[in-house]
Design a protein around this nucleic acid. Structure first.
Lengths: 210, 210
DNA sequence: GCCAAATTTAGCGATATCACCAAATCCGGC
DNA sequence: GCCGGATTTGGTGATATCGCTAAATTTGGC
C-alpha cells in the first residue's frame, strides 16, 4: 500500500506512452494521464504517487496549475516538469514553487531516469518522516485538555508546583496528569518527551494558554 | 556591522550602473562588481552581503560558477540571477542549487526590486537564526569533555545514576558536572537544555561515546 | 437519569534532584 | 617544580519526582 508510483501526465499520446515505457525500465510502476484534471480526480493514484512527471503546456489545467493545486492541498510531491516551450520566467516560477526539476524537450533519457529515481527516493524518505510525525501527533492528540495543559508546562520546564499554581489545581493532580502524559506519549523521561514534542514543531499554540 | 548590503555583479558597465541605481532606490547600500572574481576577493563585501544580483554570462568566472564557489564555501547567500541568454537547463540548475530567483532581461524593474527586498529580508532572518545557533554552539563548546559526556546522558534522558554507571564514575561527580552544564548553557531546567541542544542539530556525534 | 470518561485530590515510601559546602587528585603548560 | 583548570568524591538538608493505590467529583452523551 506504500509502493512507489510514478505518474506521467502529458496530453500527447505518443509522448506519454514513450515516457511511461522509459520510466518503467527503472522497475517502477507507472500510471499515465492525459490531463491534469484526470490526476486530481484519481485520489488513489495521488496517494500512491511518489513522483509526478508533468508536461507544462496542456489543454485544460496546465502543469503549473496542477502544481499550484496540489500545493494548496498540502500535498507535497516531487514534480519533474517536462516542456518543449519552457521560458525562463516559467522555469523560475515552477522551481520557486518547489518543483523537483524542469527538463526541456527533447531531453536526455538518462537524465530523466536519474531525476525520477532521485525524486522517488526523496518522496519515500519524506513519507517515512511524515508517517513518524503523524504517529507522534496522534499520541499528542490523544491527550485530554488538561493533560495537554500539563504537558505544556513540562515542556516549558516548569516544576509540578508551578504548573499546579498556574492551572489553579493541586500538585497531586499535576502528578497524575504528568504520569498519564508520559504513558500516552510512550516515553520514560522528560528529555524524550521534549525531543518528541519539539520534533513535531510544537510550541504552545494548540489549545492551551495558562 | 550587520547592515544589509546588496552586491551587483555584471561585466557590462552600463547595466551594472543602472541596476545599482535602481536598487539604491530601495534605500539599501549597493556595491557593484565587474566580475565574479572581484566579489570573491572582497571578503568584507561578502560578509556584509545580504543579496547577490548576478549576471549569468560573464567573462572569467560565470555567475553559476560563483554560485557554486560560494556554496562550497558554506556561504549561504540569496542569489538573484539576471540574464539575457537564459536557457531552461541553466535556470533549472541554478534554482536547484538554491538560487533565490532567475530573472530574464529585460526585466520588469519592480519585479527585481521586489525580489531583492524579499531576498534581503530572508538573509536578515537567516543571519539572526545563524547568530543564535552560533551563540548556543559556543556555549556547548565551552563544556569540558566530561561535561559533554554528562550532557549527552542528560539529553538522552538517563538518570544521574545511569550516567555515572556508564561513565564509571560516582553519582556525585555526575551531579557536579550536571550543575555546571546547566550553568554554562544558561538554562534552569532540563526541558530548556534539551530544546537548546536539539535545536542546534545535536545528536551524539561530537566527541563522546559511552 | 445513568454510564463512561475526564478531572480532581489524597497518602505513602522510595528515589532523585538541587544547592550549598569542601577537598583530593590529575594533567598540561610555564 | 609550581600553578590553574579539569576531574573526582564526599556530606547534608531541603525539595521534587515516581509508582502505586484509592476515591470523590464533574462532565458529556445515550
Amino acid at each position: 500500500m506504500d509502493d512507489p508510483l510514478v505518474c506521467v501526465v502529458d496530453d500527447d499520446d505518443a509522448v506519454r506512452l514513450s515516457m511511461s515505457l522509459l520510466i518503467e525500465t527503472l522497475g517502477l510502476p507507472v500510471q499515465s494521464f492525459a490531463s491534469a484534471l484526470d490526476v486530481l480526480a484519481d485520489e488513489e493514484a495521488l496517494r500512491q504517487a511518489h513522483c509526478l512527471v508533468l508536461d507544462v503546456r496542456m489543454p485544460g489545467l496546465s502543469g503549473v496549475g496542477l502544481q499550484e493545486r496540489l500545493s494548496r492541498l498540502g500535498h507535497p510531491l516531487p514534480i519533474i516538469f517536462v516542456s518543449a516551450h519552457g521560458d525562463v520566467p516559467m522555469v523560475a516560477r515552477a522551481m520557486r514553487e518547489g518543483a523537483f526539476d524542469f527538463l526541456q524537450k527533447p531531453f536526455n533519457e538518462q537524465v530523466l531516469l536519474d531525476r525520477v529515481q532521485e525524486a522517488v527516493q526523496f518522496a519515500a524518505a519524506q513519507r517515512a518522516a511524515r508517517g513518524w510525525l503523524a504517529e507522534i501527533q496522534a499520541r499528542i492528540d490523544s491527550l485530554t485538555a488538561r493533560e495537554s495543559d500539563v504537558m505544556a508546562g513540562m515542556v516549558a520546564g516548569r516544576l509540578n508546583k508551578q504548573i499546579a499554581e498556574g492551572l489553579g489545581i493541586s500538585i497531586k493532580t499535576v502528578e497524575q496528569h504528568r504520569a498519564r502524559v508520559m504513558e500516552k506519549l510512550q516515553v520514560d523521561s522528560l528529555a524524550e518527551l521534549v525531543r518528541l514534542v519539539v520534533g513535531v514543531g510544537w510550541s504552545a499554540e494548540s489549545k492551551n494558554g495558562q
